[in-house]
Design a protein around this nucleic acid. Structure first.
Lengths: 140, 140
DNA sequence: ACTTGATCTAGACCTCACTCTAGATCGTAG
DNA sequence: CTACGATCTAGAGTGAGGTCTAGATCAAGT
């Protein structure tokens, strides 16, 4: 899962933005909100230096966010990881609950998809027939 | 697809809220925003009376919203239907584009799901082994 | 030394999709 | 007639999740 080729090659915020797909604004925002596991290192001049660990964590964050995990849950998860060993059961529970929500989302989307597909079919058929029918009730 | 048992039995806003899962506030909001195909009928006293057509349309709206169609697109779709025959190609295009977005969403969620499942597996395994290992890197 | 572009902070601002409030009115049951 | 709950309108407020701004600083190239 490591993103790094060389084990230690700190990245600038811009580079991390590119690698994660998050904006630099979002990266700073996530940090302020306590969504990162550790404090991000800084150069002597005050610029952020992200380690491969930071980037890996952010990539996971991206996946969790993409699947609609609220920032509050993400924050809780980060806190658990930050506090180290001893709370793995809770981490597991948090992730597993989220996985169930993702499953539910997929199912819901598949239902939507079938409704949409059916409706697309209705239109396509009518168009194919030359759209000269009078059957256009408001909801079809 | 008709929800009505009796072809003509107008419903109150509260009943429609119950049937669609939308709040009465949301129903009024949708109407104001032009998301409905026709104007909703009113009683002499000014109360809304929804027809089975209205409800069917709302049920479709619910599905489209559930799959993240923005209200702006929903509004456009409503406008097209409102203007009647002659724009079926555009309706088809709008729906089909949305269907593609839904497919992409499902795919993305499935990817998320597999990342999460993998991580759940990591925790579960460690817990099963008695959590006495020192392997807890920040991102695992 | 100078210029340029990336980064810094604090905090204001934004969009989306509702949600809620106030104060009035309707309609039905007692 | 009176209560009471459901509904009405216009408009303000909310929460999530960023996004943007201003004004300063840093770092690299020429």
């Amino acid at each position: 899962m490591a993103t790094s080729e060389t084990p230690a090659d700190p990245l600038s915020i811009g580079e991390v933005a590119e690698q994660t797909g998050l904006s630099v604004h979002a990266l700073r925002f996530y940090e302020r909100e306590g969504l990162l596991v550790g404090p991000v290192q800084r150069t002597s001049g005050g610029r952020r230096r992200y380690t491969a660990f930071d980037v890996d964590w952010l990539l996971i964050c991206v996946k969790l966010r993409e699947s609609q995990m609220p920032l509050a849950d993400l924050k809780r998860f980060a806190e658990l990881v930050r506090h180290g060993p001893g709370n793995e059961a809770e981490r597991l529970q948090l992730l597993d609950a989220h996985r169930q929500r993702v499953d539910a989302q997929i199912q819901a989307l598949e239902e939507c998809r079938s409704v949409i597909t059916w409706k697309v079919g209705v239109y396509a058929e009518h168009l194919a027939r030359g759209e000269a029918e009078g059957l256009w009730a408001p909801t079809t």
